[in-house]
């Protein structure tokens, strides 16, 4: 028999927790991050609706949040987390810092994707008399769609990495399982299983992202 201290229920629960954390923080992170990315592109000097003040505030704020390692962000914002989800322990408590961690990251990635859109297309849009919102909706986003899919793929994979640290606030998940059983209780089997599962997750998401992006780019 396999020599391990964890039960299959524990493993299934950990997988569920990881999926929940990744899913929810990706959803809310994207809802915040995509508008942030759009704002960064359109308010920058020479952008669609140039706004130096907004850009000069947004840009460093994103840099500050992004310069914090996730494990520090996680504990630093505990009071804020408590305010939002009324608890500082558990999976829900982990989602708040995960969103705060991934939203600026997505913002930056979206910014890069949108900046790659052929400037000629933006010019054509302006020549057609499109409003700034129409330029974003009918020109920028469709043209950047393939690249945005890859952006979200990268963000998702980044999130999976960050969830491993969510154990610190009792968030559970595969990373937590690997640390508390595999590492702290010398259970090699748990380490191997979680590593394999994480590799499969990451590979699967990356492959899916690549396929979708290729479809979007008509390759």
């Amino acid at each position: 028999m396999i020599d391990t201290v964890i039960t299959s229920e524990q493993l299934v629960r950990a997988i569920n927790e990881t999926l929940r954390m990744v899913g929810f923080s990706l959803l809310f992170g994207a809802l915040l991050g995509i508008p942030i990315g759009i704002l960064l592109v359109i308010t920058r000097p020479g952008g669609l609706v140039e706004n130096a003040t907004l850009y000069r505030i947004l840009n460093p704020v994103i840099n500050i949040v992004r310069s914090l390692p996730f494990i520090i962000l996680l504990v630093a914002i505990l009071p804020f987390t408590r305010l939002i989800v009324h608890t500082s322990i558990g999976t829900s408590a982990a989602i708040v810092p995960l969103v705060l961690y991934v939203a600026p990251y997505i913002g930056r990635l979206v910014e890069n994707s949108l900046l790659e859109v052929n400037p000629g297309i933006m010019e054509a849009a302006k020549a057609m008399g499109a409003t700034p919102l129409q330029v974003i909706w009918y020109f920028m986003l469709p043209e950047a769609f393939g690249s945005l899919i890859l952006t979200m793929t990268t963000a998702t994979i980044g999130l999976i990495g960050a969830t491993a640290m969510a154990g610190t606030v009792g968030g559970g998940g595969l990373g937590d399982l690997a640390i508390s059983y595999g590492y702290q209780r010398f259970d090699t089997f748990t380490i191997i299983v979680t590593v394999i599962l994480l590799v499969i997750f990451v590979q699967g998401i990356q492959s899916l992202g690549n396929v979708l992006a290729r479809k979007a780019r008509r390759e």
Binding site: E123, M128, R217
Partner: peptide, 15 residues
Amino acid sequence: KKIGMIFQHFNLLES
């Protein structure tokens, strides 16, 4: 909208 424009590199939406 009453002034059309065409470009050297066409600037069509690839998507």
